[in-house]
Design a protein around this nucleic acid. Structure first.
Lengths: 202, 202
DNA sequence: CGCAACATTGAAGCAGATCAAGGCATGTGG
DNA sequence: CCACATGCCTTGATCTGCTTCAATGTTGCG
């Protein structure tokens, strides 16, 4: 499987308009996947962390755009050869299915968040999700690093930057978290988990 | 693959709390999948139509509840034997992957809808989606049958029944649709597609 | 230092939620 | 066959919370 190693810095990786010609496996850094409407409204679908596929060869749909937050490195495999390999190897097929199922699960949780959760619930769920997803299982550590901007969080949670900011400061006033630029410390994990509506992926 | 044929009428099929012990393939009728929070807020994740899997064996997650709208018949296969069969047959594996990918695509469109679309855009996108999904490709027919209640639509689109109703009547005033109980006729499909933000699955 | 980018805070406006009432089918029993 | 009940949908009035608009604060970097 001829995989090239690529290095991208704050660059657009691909647009949703172009049919994905390659499969990318993220090795380091963070990538955000989003859809942007004509008038500029943006919805972030998720953040890919190392080990994630950025896009999968889902027949001929054009699902979203993706770009890097900071510096990233990816393994790039041509779509064609990836498909061939998937055809030959049921193990790879299973891996891809497992990944896709997990993505579906996450997306469905996001749907609940966007459809029915309050700003506070969204933020807290996001913090927990991000802690479990990104923080390299530094167990015990309650400090969460948020490498993305507030506007990214807003566009992920379907709110405005202002509401994100206000909600975070409110949570700080309520002694649930401590804010520190791009760091957030959970003061009462139990309470936070209580207030966050959504379960996190296993 | 020992598949039993089951008949269910307006019944809860399974709860999100129980780990899915079976795989269900919907043969006739419509099933709604949803998550309900403790306080009663409900978010419908989607409507399954004949040919859809209702739930897939996604490791040990407990994704959602499902129940029937009207009468449905399903093929029920035990989770264990389905997994075995999937292990033996790459073709089935590929089918399941294809189905899951489509679900993911649909879920991601729903995320955009819930995160960034106006009530009008949500309703119109929903109508188009439902037309393509459910109406058995009666091409040319612009009449869409909505077998679900307004409250189901509301819970699918993250709004209230009242807003659904008001938005529909507004669309009728604007000569885009005609309402008739559980039937909706699109008067200007081109305009409707224009105003609906989301693309439909291929 | 001084600019640029991002974050926070404040004030005002408005869209959608909530609360409340009425309408319109379908079904049931007298 | 009509009176009434029930379930669902629609419509109206009010209210609230989020967005919008605007200003100020903070951090990092040339």
């Amino acid at each position: 499987m001829s995989a090239e190693r690529h290095c991208v810095a704050n660059d657009m990786i691909f647009l949703e308009s172009e049919h994905a010609l390659s499969v990318y496996l993220l090795t380091t850094g963070i990538v955000r996947r989003h859809k942007t409407l004509r008038d500029g409204r943006r919805q972030i679908l998720g953040f890919a962390v190392p080990g994630d596929f950025i896009v999968l060869p889902q027949s001929d749909r054009k699902p979203f755009s993706a770009d890097a937050i900071g510096n990233v490195t990816v393994n790039k495999i041509s779509r064609a050869s990836f498909l061939t390999f998937m055809r030959l190897s049921p193990a790879l097929l299973r891996l891809v299915l497992e990944f896709t199922s997990r993505e579906l699960y996450i997306a469905q949780n996001q749907v609940v968040l966007l459809g029915r959760a309050t700003p506070t619930e969204r933020l807290l769920s996001f913090l927990l999700m991000w802690r479990d997803r990104f923080t390299q299982s530094e167990t015990g550590s309650t400090e969460i690093i948020l490498p993305m901007k507030r506007s990214d969080i807003a566009d992920y949670l379907g709110m405005t930057v202002e509401t994100v900011s206000r909600t975070l400061t409110k949570l700080q006033r309520d002694k649930l978290i401590v804010l520190n630029r791009d760091r957030v410390t959970l003061l009462d994990s139990a309470q936070v988990a209580m207030l966050a509506t959504t379960q996190r992926p296993s």
